[in-house]
């Protein structure tokens, strides 16, 4: 194990999901250890370009750093398969698609499967062009049901893992301190991942009693995932 991959697991939070050892990474992804599967969601590539095309002057090409981060995780963890749980692209196949293709070439050997999200408005036939497999949902090892929108139902015995929500919690400290943190939201039958992309926005959730919240304290290589209660 390299020093970097050591650090990745040190900063992560270890948890058992449906009998499987998993790491909740401070890079806002989940790594299933025995199957070597990397799960992440909501990159929204092309969001900044979309803004710019509509005349809103946000900085361009922020998404390169999201892909760099994903590349870093792939290099360090060497996953067999990577599942992106939807919203890889912000508006259909957009202007940053070349950016993605270029990146994809550098990681040809890794299988990447996209579970289609509500933002991914393009034909499944594009999968070849992008070099990824595209599915509506997927059952992994008879343990996990991977889909984009969490939904209100679940299959018996399966844990639904999804994205879409961009969950975050507001934490309070003494002296009127507050901070909003992206989080993993785990309830009885569902795990919702935080948005992997940087320029994506967050939705503050109101968890129910019994839910578990794992907040992501971002800070590059020194970030951390901690459970809060």
């Amino acid at each position: 194990m390299s020093r970097d991959s050591m650090r990745i697991s040190e900063n992560a939070c270890t948890i058992v999901l449906n009998g499987e050892q998993a790491l909740m990474l401070s890079q806002k992804a989940v790594f299933l250890m025995s199957d070597k599967v990397l799960l992440l969601s909501d990159l929204h590539i092309g969001k900044s370009s979309h803004f710019r095309r509509e005349g809103v002057a946000v900085p361009s090409s922020m998404h390169a750093s999201d892909l760099l981060k994903l590349g870093y995780l792939i290099k360090q963890l060497n996953p067999k398969r990577v599942f992106i749980l939807g919203d890889l692209f912000h508006v259909g196949l957009n202007y940053d698609v070349d950016l993605f293709k270029g990146w994809r070439d550098a990681f040809k050997d890794t299988d990447i499967i996209l579970i289609k999200g509500n933002h991914d408005r393009f034909e499944a036939s594009k999968s070849c062009e992008l070099g990824i497999e595209i599915l509506d949902d997927y059952i992994l090892n008879d343990k996990f049901h991977l889909r984009h929108i969490p939904g209100n139902f679940h299959y018996d015995g399966l844990l639904t893992i999804s994205g879409h929500i961009h969950p975050a919690v507001r934490v309070f400290g003494k002296g009127r301190q507050t901070a909003t943190l992206s989080c993993f939201h785990l309830s009885e039958h569902k795990l919702v991942l935080p948005a992997f992309g940087e320029f994506t926005g967050r939705h503050i959730i109101s968890p129910y009693p019994g839910d578990r919240i794992f907040a992501v304290i971002e800070g590059g290589s020194s970030g951390k995932v901690v459970e809060i209660r």
Binding site: V169, V171, I217, E218, K224, I228
Partner: peptide, 25 residues
């Protein structure tokens, strides 16, 4: 009751020290 804290710490350090709690729905 309105108190502020003087801190030059980074967010991550601050959050670590914070008594973590959030509002339940």
């Amino acid at each position: 009751r309105m108190r502020e804290k003087i801190t030059t710490e980074k967010l991550e350090d601050r959050v670590r020290k914070m008594q973590l709690r959030y509002e339940q729905g």
